[in-house]
Design a protein around this nucleic acid. Structure first.
Lengths: 216, 216
DNA sequence: TCCGAGTTCAACCTTTTGATTGATGCCGGT
DNA sequence: ACCGGCATCAATCAAAAGGTTGAACTCGGA
């Protein structure tokens, strides 16, 4: 990976997006796309099998696959030395998306509305081990640094995301492999941080602040 | 538009997606991409200026533009005879997205996870004036026809709106000058109609179906 | 090395919510 | 005139959620 050529793996469930990334990136002479994956599981497999320098990873993988992009990122980067870098390329820039992805070891985080040049630059940065963040994501992170009180922790954001999906505390505890007590504990902290006193109000507040995604 | 060649306009704010659509569609010999638009407004302009048979229209256009894809679709199809057909190609398949788009006069509705062949087939259908719906969208529409019970009454919608704002049943009863029993009664009806069993899930479901406003 | 924040869990209690059953009055359409 | 859906309310029970206290572990920074 220190030679001139950068070997890429595209992981996205949308054929159109894969074709778009391929079209945009193949015009760079030093990029080679060695594989494509339509599911997160397949991305993890291919990242292990093929020699890959950078994985371009989507976060959302449709209802078909049980694994999401953040989990796949964690699985790929868990190998440590020699593992490919993961550059997340997705549509959403809320804390609920960015934090787990960066937590999972992503080297960069780009939005799909990025122009081709920025995409190519980010790929080169990732290949060299340098971090590449979209401006809005970087802003959000800095904002978190400045006001640490108002920000939710990674785990809290994760829990709140499931609350917003309509899950009960029981269901959340099962999903995250936690005890019911822990989920309630997280929720108490979330409520105090957001200044509310019910799950519905917390979801509303978090949506308004851009902590979780707005869509369904 | 009855000759062999089908003239296309791509409208999407993501350069990567435009490149992907171009790559996928240009491989069809009878397709010609005459223009691309990165905003909804520009799409309306180009649809009027250039001779276009089919517009591939995204619905989400980022915070940059005031107009969304459904509004652009309405503006394009409003010209009536001679206006290009609009084929919506987007990521979301909730009622809140599909219904306004079809209402606005879209000839077809595809999801971005559609394989290239399906995309090409849909473009040809649209060019011929035939409707092309993604299977999941068609299913959803038929489901709506079959079960008109899914529609909430005015009062129920009002209650659910306050639930979405994070109010407790007590607060709702005070706000609407109702007894607590009545609020709970409405909620029971709402839950059965939506097929859920908690207020948070109801809010999520209603948001997904476009029964309540999406913004916070 | 100690401290604080995050994450994890337990036990206990109160309040809220959801489920069930049943009842009344109103209004619109057959 | 009757029926069905809507809106209103009551009572009661079970379940879920929320509040409080206390505690253990990890990990990174002062």
């Amino acid at each position: 990976m220190t030679e001139g050529v950068i070997r890429l793996l595209l992981a996205d469930d949308h054929p159109v997006v894969r074709a778009g990334l391929r079209a945009v990136l193949e015009s760079e002479p030093d990029f080679v796309i060695v594989a494509e994956a339509a599911t997160a599981e397949r991305a993890v497999e291919l990242a292990a099998e093929a020699e890959v320098d950078v994985v371009l990873m989507d976060l959302q993988f449709g209802p078909g696959s049980a694994m999401n992009g953040a989990q796949a990122t964690a699985a790929i980067t868990a190998r440590g030395a020699g593992a490919p870098r993961v550059l997340v390329v997705t549509t959403y820039d809320t804390d609920a998306d960015t934090l787990p992805a960066l937590e999972a070891g992503a080297t960069g985080y780009l939005l799909k509305d990025a122009p081709p040049e920025e995409l190519a630059r980010a790929v080169r940065s990732a290949a060299a081990g340098r971090t590449a963040l979209a401006p809005t994501v970087a802003d959000r992170l800095l904002e978190r640094m400045r006001t640490p009180a108002a920000a939710l922790s990674v785990r809290e954001t994760e829990v709140l995301g499931l609350v917003a999906d309509g899950l009960t505390n029981q269901a959340i505890s099962r999903r995250l492999q936690l005890s019911l007590a822990t989920v309630k504990s997280h929720l108490v902290h979330i409520y105090t941080k957001l200044g509310v006193e019910s799950r519905t109000a917390a979801v509303r507040e978090a949506r308004a602040r851009g902590l979780i995604r707005r869509g369904g």
